[in-house]
Design a protein around this nucleic acid. Structure first.
Length: 108
DNA sequence: AAGGTGACCGGCC
DNA sequence: TGGCCGGCCACCT
């Protein structure tokens, strides 16, 4: 529990089930800093160094792959999501509300 | 030590 | 209807 901000973000990101997605704001909210969704994105940026963190399952509240530009290729993030069964069109996740997974710190 | 930055969110014009 | 602006908090230079 008493971990760094990054560690918390990573911990939650790791919990994202396969084929599911969540938003930065949702993670931030779970961390208690709902207004600091930017920090989540920042942590994700650093998570690029870690392969344990499925950053591709984290998108903005619109279900848009805003961070796909940060991945290696241009459509790597989309490919990863589609590989898990998530339909993505034009960087937009289909049925985002259905695939949305709500993170919860109580799981720790 | 201080300022700038950022893969966001929500509200306002 | 869509675009702009501020807030928010931690990390980096």
């Amino acid at each position: 529990m008493e971990e760094n901000f990054f560690e918390k973000v990573y911990a939650i990101a790791k919990q994202i089930p396969e084929g599911r997605v969540t938003s930065y704001g949702a993670i931030a909210k779970a961390l208690g800093t709902a207004r600091s969704a930017r920090m989540v994105g920042w942590a994700m940026n650093a998570s690029h160094n870690l392969d344990d963190v499925p950053a591709h399952r984290v998108v903005n509240r619109n279900g848009l792959l805003t961070g796909k530009h940060h991945f290696d290729g241009t459509n790597l993030m989309q490919q990863l999501l589609e590989n898990e069964g998530v339909k993505v069109v034009e960087n937009q996740i289909l049925d985002f509300d259905k695939l949305f997974w709500e993170p919860n710190l109580e799981q720790f």
